[in-house]
């Protein structure tokens, strides 16, 4: 199965890259874009057909390595 893990900075943490992108978009004329949060995206190929198991494993991996809980949060999707 394939798990997708999305990691972003927590809303309370300032995201300087996101801010820079927003500012660039505004100078390009996209004034309607209010906020941009930048993050990381991972695709994990997991050898199982059990989606609950895949999701649990992806979450465990995200907890241990892919995300830093002090500054980042994550979301897992199974496809």
């Amino acid at each position: 199965m394939r798990a997708r893990v999305f990691v972003t900075l927590k809303p309370s943490v300032f995201d300087p890259q996101g801010r820079t992108i927003v500012e660039a978009l505004h100078t390009m004329g996209y004034g309607d874009v209010g906020d941009v949060r930048q993050g990381k995206y991972f695709e994990l190929e997991i050898e199982t057909t059990d989606s609950a198991k895949a999701k649990a494993m992806a979450a465990e991996v995200a907890d241990k390595l892919l995300a830093n809980p002090v500054i980042e949060s994550y979301r897992v999707e199974i496809v």
Partner: peptide
């Protein structure tokens, strides 16, 4: 990252 010290690092504000 190893949890031996408190806190975390972000990219420099000037990027």
């Amino acid at each position: 990252e190893a949890g031996l010290l408190p806190g975390a690092m972000l990219r420099n504000r000037g990027l």
